[in-house]
Design a protein around this nucleic acid. Structure first.
Lengths: 229, 229
DNA sequence: CATCCTGACATTGTTGACACTTTCAAGTTA
DNA sequence: TAACTTGAAAGTGTCAACAATGTCAGGATG
């Protein structure tokens, strides 16, 4: 997936880094269930490393907001709740809106062209009903715009901190999400605004897009489990 | 300072936590100079703790973006650059704008009243030329609005991740910053919008306020050191 | 019967020692 | 002299053992 590769610039050189990536993948792909308590001795022996390295890896996971720790009690995988998902959408609306504005101002021409190609790929996969890869192409789209903002800290906050959570939720709700055609239309408008270098409009459209995505997710969650917190 | 106390909910119970808070304060207040390399053995003996605890504390500092680490090479305190400061302002514009919108929608009446009182304190200190405490009152103002958003993740991202950096820069540039009267007027407008529960306007005004603050900082930096990166 | 102690067990926090990598200066060679 | 090699020193990464804390079942007490 282009998203993962492009977002992870540095190779894992140390054991703790490798472990961190392993555990992150395991959490994002549901191998380690949400809400589960992490037992340090258990995991350490399972992965064949010492507790020290594991603790360092857990520390990094805490930074990604994928686990929470309490002193003298331990770490657990985050749970998922509708309210937390809504919070994430609000933050994405603000930050990706800004990213779209900056991308319209700062993206190089070839980057804009690449963005347009992602859109074409998206359309092709819709026509062929490749539902499984539409999520990847969607991530690529958002990721490219974030990169285009050229704001290194914004990029880090979104790609490293927030999008892990997005993927965490997306993986667990993927069955419900099939808004690709509508999303494609909205993506189209955003790219057009970026091509016109209209930052104001790009931001407005991106915020609208993410709000629509939030509303859709909210409706789907209500349908699936109306009583769930 | 109300900001620091209210933002730190949990007591430091573990050695690594205490060390983390100590080091964070030392960095924010310039005790440890920007850009300095951190020697683990040196610091560990200086604080009378083992390297393991120190490394855990450094990990937390890395999460706050106050130090950067490279494998097998070590950690160093972040440096400061105008471009990085501008990036932070862009992110604050987006996120605090959203926070102000949500605060207008979600703040309880007594919280709004408290906000108004902060403003009165601000005015009193301007009249008495208490420049040193105006920065604190400014932090309290922004912090209260962020809290008022009721978005727990937004609060965490701003208060824990971004505002450490704000304080890092503010401490090192405090001499140049004397925009309190203008800032007070802008704060006034924002509170008025929140009191009217006008989220749209609160966001617009907050974004304007932060952009004005950025422009001012930019101008000051140019005046002080036009050639600096 | 419910509540409170109590003590053994399991888990986390902390430490010092060992292994590996980087750095840097002295010496060698073209 | 400049560039490369080498070896020691310093620093970081990793580990296993110890100390401190939290957990929970069993029994005593009202």
């Amino acid at each position: 997936m282009a998203f993962a590769t492009a977002c992870k610039l540095q190779e894992p050189v140390t054991i703790a880094d490798k472990l961190f990536l392993d555990l992150r993948r395991a959490i994002l792909e549901g191998e380690l269930p949400a809400g589960k308590k992490i037992s340090e001795p258990e995991l350490a022996t399972a992965y064949g490393v010492s507790r020290g390295s594991l603790r360092e890896a857990i520390g990094k996971l805490e930074n990604c907001n994928l686990v929470t720790r309490k002193p003298n009690i331990g770490a657990r995988i985050i749970g998922f709740s509708t309210s937390q998902l809504m919070e994430i959408y609000q933050i994405r609306e603000a930050m990706e809106g800004m990213a779209a504005r900056l991308a319209a101002e700062n993206m190089a021409e070839d980057e804009v062209a690449r963005l347009r190609r992602i859109l074409e790929r998206h359309k092709a996969e819709i026509d062929q009903h490749h539902n499984y890869s539409q999520q990847d192409v969607d991530l690529d789209f958002h990721f490219s715009i974030i990169q285009g903002s050229k704001n290194s800290r914004l990029i880090r906050m979104l790609c490293q901190d927030l999008y892990d959570l997005v993927r965490f939720y997306r993986f667990r709700l993927k069955a419900s999400f099939n808004r690709s055609e509508q999303a494609f239309q909205e993506h189209n408008l955003i790219v057009a605004a970026i091509e016109r270098r209209d930052g104001e409009m790009a931001e407005t459209l991106m915020r609208h897009h993410i709000r629509a995505s939030r509303d859709y997710a909210c409706k789907m969650l209500d349908k699936v489990s109306p009583s769930e917190v």
